[in-house]
Design a protein around this nucleic acid. Structure first.
Length: 394
DNA sequence: TCTGGGGTCCTAGGACCC
DNA sequence: TCTGGGGTCCTAGGACCC
């Protein structure tokens, strides 16, 4: 989906189209917005259906932001000033101070996310969820999926999604997920790109290695240090050389990726591995001096994870914590207990044990609680362990 | 300009078992 | 008598993705 979080907001606030808009900086509820509107413009009627009449001047600007948030999305107008997702909002404000800043509305984003995915599965049922705004679709068995190299079906999907949601998306069609992902970015927004096996040299090899899904900042730096900047240069290296420099698994994968080889299937169903909640404090907290405040946050995180687990019907055996210190160094500790739990008090107890094993003499920026080794209680609950039978046979 | 929150997967050492 | 080979599980850290 194109600039998904921002596009969702523009559906409600069409008066912001064409302006630089940045999404991020926390969440705000519609109720709060309406309350502020009634206060600012008491002579008008305000409700969920009059949001398109809010004057542009009413919206908060990036320059007025003071906090620790990052940009989730920026409209293409804001991107022209250099603002991008994951960028700190204070930095974004320096680049584009007049941009409008809107908080994330997770509920609405999730609603539209479900809507566009349902639209796709009606047309092409083999779909893999890759987060709120992205999916892989297997065209192979879809009637008409091969026409014009997939372009006909891609157009149908775009049109159907636009009808259902009012939003645009970009689609890449290719022989596998690796290339399709790259192709999807060739023609944004609202684009379609078809990459055939023969197009590898022409369309993929000139790209920087960083465009490969799985090559992040670290690997990219390491590749550059070896004089490898493009995927073509990567493909030119011997497989054994890559294995020697990047490890058996990653080196071989890099080689395959550069040659456009990827046999991962489109996975339609998957079970979660872990669930977690974490929070960055408004100001760094000291375990001793801010004990009460930290304790309350810690308890709340445990309660939130427990509620998430219960709502989704999971329980977990490995309870863990995560701390980020002022200098951004991070530590994790975890503890595996005998019986899977989704109980806040039990999680809090185990997480408390973990907390005792980290340095609590320094100020903390972030605290998180995680539950892993998940199971569905209904399926694995109370697998009775037979008591040893004593005094009978012998 | 100090950098969110929710995830997955991989690696590696050590405990422990047969 | 100084030492096997296979395996699983636990823990910590880190890269990467949306």
């Amino acid at each position: 989906m194109d600039a998904f979080y921002a596009s969702v907001e523009l559906l409600r606030y069409p008066q912001l189209r064409g302006l630089p808009v940045v999404i991020g900086g926390g969440r705000r509820r519609l109720d709060d917005l309406l309350a502020r509107l009634r206060q600012t413009y008491p002579d008008r009627e305000w409700g969920p259906h009059t949001l398109d009449r809010i004057p542009v001047d009413f919206f908060p600007r990036l320059q007025d932001y003071a906090g620790r948030g990052v940009a989730t999305t920026a409209t293409y107008e804001a991107r022209q000033s250099g603002v991008g997702s994951a960028m700190g909002l204070m930095k974004a404000a320096a680049l584009c101070p007049q941009a409008i800043l809107l908080p994330v509305d997770f509920e609405e984003v999730r609603r539209i996310s479900r809507l566009f995915k349902a639209t796709i599965t009606e047309i092409a049922p083999v779909m893999e969820d890759r987060g709120v705004d992205e999916v892989y679709i297997d065209f192979t068995q879809v009637p008409g999926g091969q026409r014009e190299g997939g372009r006909v079906l891609a157009r149908l999907i775009q049109k159907s999604i636009h009808q259902a949601t009012g939003l645009t998306c970009s689609i890449g069609v290719a022989p596998n997920k690796l290339i399709a992902k790259m192709a999807s970015e060739f023609n944004k927004p609202a684009g379609i790109s078809i990459v055939m096996p023969d197009d590898l040299e022409r369309l993929i090899w000139p790209l920087p290695c960083r465009k490969i899904n799985g090559v992040g900042p670290k690997a990219d730096e390491k590749l550059k240090a070896q004089g490898i900047h493009t995927i073509g240069e990567l493909a030119a290296r011997e497989r054994d050389w890559l294995v020697a420099h990047f490890g058996r698994s990653y080196g071989a994968w890099l080689h395959d990726a550069a040659w456009g080889r990827d046999d991962r299937p489109v996975v339609t169903e998957s079970e979660p591995v872990s669930m977690s909640r974490e929070t960055t404090f408004e100001r760094d907290l000291h375990p001793a001096r801010d004990r009460a405040e930290l304790g309350a946050i810690f308890t709340r995180l445990c309660e939130q994870v427990a509620a998430d687990l219960q709502r989704k019907g999971y329980a977990g055996r490995t309870i863990g914590i995560k701390l980020t210190y002022t200098d951004f160094s991070k530590v994790t500790r975890d503890l595996t207990i005998d019986l899977a739990t989704a109980d806040a008090a039990t999680i809090r107890r185990a997480a408390g044990q973990c907390l005792k094993r980290v340095d609590l003499g320094r100020r903390i920026r972030l605290l998180g609680v995680r539950v892993g080794k998940l199971s569905r209680p209904g399926e694995t609950a109370a697998t009775a362990v037979a008591e040893p039978e004593t005094g009978w046979l012998f």
